[in-house]
Design a protein around this nucleic acid. Structure first.
Lengths: 133, 133
DNA sequence: CCGTATCCCACGAGATACTG
DNA sequence: CAGTATCTCGTGGGATACGG
């Protein structure tokens, strides 16, 4: 799978994608042709909080995946756009997407099996172990 | 990139891989031919704590990616082995690995650029803003 | 050897209120 | 419109000690 330092490099990418909103934000950005304004993203990802969106955007910017562009029109307007580096995420994200489509049902099934097995184990030696606590 | 429900399925996979140790543990398991004993994994991933390893293994088991096998020899011995479902992770993980190899230097470079830019912005309007706090 | 139990801290993230 | 500032809570994870 991987040997030693590759793991560390991979953590970098995983940490990039792992937080709760990054993928959704990126999807919104790409959906908007690669650029969106702050509140447009908020509307596209309705359940995100302001704070989380700001944090998320800052991280993406810090890592060079998106760019923050202050528009020079009269009103205050800021646009976020995906950089070329950000575009390169398409490949790994596509791989994740494909795996999810193919195997996530199996994972859900495994969870149910596991839950039942645990319940059976609990029932095998005594009733209501939780009540004893 | 992705539209609506795919995101939720992807979260499942990301959550699987996101915690600090899963990838390393999986790598150790695969390195051991697909099966390793508890303390063998610990030695392979020296900086992990007992607690974290237990937690990590439980999650992997719960999601059907590995199997816990109690050996029926005299001494207490437990082996963890990758399931067929677990093997299917090779594809997405390989994609992550490849991206990391190709682009992680660019991310690190972006971080430095960003840090310098921030420092320049800070220096432009006043010295030692941190000292003021 | 293979864990469980407890304490403790850091951090992600929601809610809410305020500013340029 | 595009943020910043606090508060608070839940959880991940390290350290340590104990149990089967």
């Amino acid at each position: 799978m991987a040997e030693h330092e590759e793991l560390q490099a991979m953590r970098l990418l995983i940490d990039l994608l792992a937080d709760k909103w990054t993928i959704a934000v990126l999807a919104s950005l790409c959906g908007g042709g690669g650029a969106q304004r702050f509140n447009a993203i908020r509307r596209a990802v309705p359940t995100i909080s302001q704070k989380s969106l700001v944090t998320c955007l800052k991280r993406l910017e810090r890592n060079g995946l998106i760019e923050r562009v202050v528009m020079t029109t009269g009103e205050l307007a800021v646009e976020y756009r995906v950089t070329p580096l950000g575009r390169t995420l398409d490949d790994p994200v596509a791989a994740l997407l494909q795996w999810s489509a193919m195997h996530s049902p199996a994972v859900r099934a495994a969870r149910h099996t596991f839950a039942e097995r645990v319940a059976a184990d609990a029932g095998a030696w005594g009733r209501e172990p939780l009540a004893a606590a």
